[in-house]
Design a binder for these strands. Structure first.
Length: 294
DNA sequence: TGCCTTAGGCCTTTAAGATT
DNA sequence: AATCTTAAAGGCCTAAGGCA
């Protein structure tokens, strides 16, 4: 049993598709097919159920995958820990975020002023298959996960209603969400945190939002809101506070519209000194951030 | 029939170990 | 140190089977 075979096995198991797994591994499909076959020969059992149409993990394969993932995580942890023992902390931090893309650049910039040697691998959104591969995840809480994770809250923010300036409600100082039931909404694509939040809060109020613009790009959504192209639920802090001159931000009296952003990490994964430094830095950063806003 | 899939044959390249 | 041997990885080509 070779390390390379195990890495290939994980990729095939996660895709359950030889050709796509081979593309991701940047080897030819026949080479991968043979490597998997020789792994099966060396462990003495079939790991996949094969037809001419598809390849699928069988019960042996699923059990093997669980253990191989753990084993490779341990090896990876060991390697990172060894590197960590050398000199100053400089281990790259793999940071995934599903929210707060407007405030993360400033956070990273402030951190790197203090720790210029520490580099980052940034990823927006968590991949939909396999074990999540991040040191830290910045997301909305509570966070559901199949693996064992720990969490620290970073900030709780109000959600405002962005409304075009020339709208009759725009003169108000606050609003009840039900008053926006008949409006045209702008939001992010289904599955994003802001979209889920929008739908959840509207449902709570008793209506389904009529979404006329949706995009996977937060800048576009924010731009459309700024242009007064519709109403939108707008996170007060992480979407940058102010908005363009064509919209105003109104506090919502009812229901309570808030969300908490937090940091999540996998408790089975080695936490490098770099990661530990960044974690502490981010907590302090957001503490100062919210007290400045008050 | 044409397209897509997995898998086998045969080849070259590469790396590690053995031998001179 | 240079050369030879061996094993494994991986690429190209292609066969076989399912499906629309």
């Amino acid at each position: 049993m070779e390390l390379l075979q195990l890495k290939y096995f994980i990729t095939v198991a996660r895709h359950e598709h030889m050709t796509r797994a081979a593309e991701q591994l940047r080897i030819s499909q026949p080479a991968l097919s043979r490597t998997i076959a020789s792994l099966e020969q060396s462990v003495g059992v079939q790991l996949f159920e094969r037809t001419s149409k598809y390849i699928k993990l069988n019960a042996h394969g699923r059990s093997f995958l669980k253990n191989v993932e753990q084993a490779l995580t341990i090896l990876d942890n060991a390697e990172r820990e060894l590197r960590d023992l050398e000199g100053e902390p400089a281990e790259p931090i793999s940071l995934t975020f599903t929210v707060a893309s407007y405030v993360i650049p400033a956070l990273l910039s402030a951190f790197r002023k203090k720790h210029p040697r520490i580099t980052f691998r940034l990823q927006q959104n968590v991949p939909s298959y396999g074990q999540p591969d991040f040191d830290l995840l910045i997301t909305s809480l509570p966070y559901q996960s199949s693996s064992e994770t720990a969490t620290v809250p970073l900030l709780t923010e109000d959600i405002f209603l962005a409304i075009p300036c020339d709208h009759p409600l725009a003169k108000r100082t606050s609003i009840r969400l039900e008053e926006a039931a008949g409006e045209e909404f702008i939001s992010l694509r289904r599955g994003s945190n802001l979209r889920e939040l929008t739908e959840h809060l509207c449902r709570l109020t008793g209506f389904a939002p009529n979404i006329v613009f949706e995009s996977d790009n937060p800048s576009i959504v924010r731009g459309l809101i700024g242009e007064g192209q519709g109403v939108a639920l707008f996170p007060a802090v992480t979407w940058g506070g102010s908005i363009g001159s064509s919209s105003v931000l109104l506090p919502i009296e009812e229901p309570v519209c808030k969300r908490t952003i937090g940091m999540v990490w996998n408790t089975n994964r080695y936490v490098s000194r770099s990661t530990e430094l960044f974690k502490e830095f981010a907590v302090r950063y957001f503490n100062n951030f919210t007290s400045e806003l008050r």
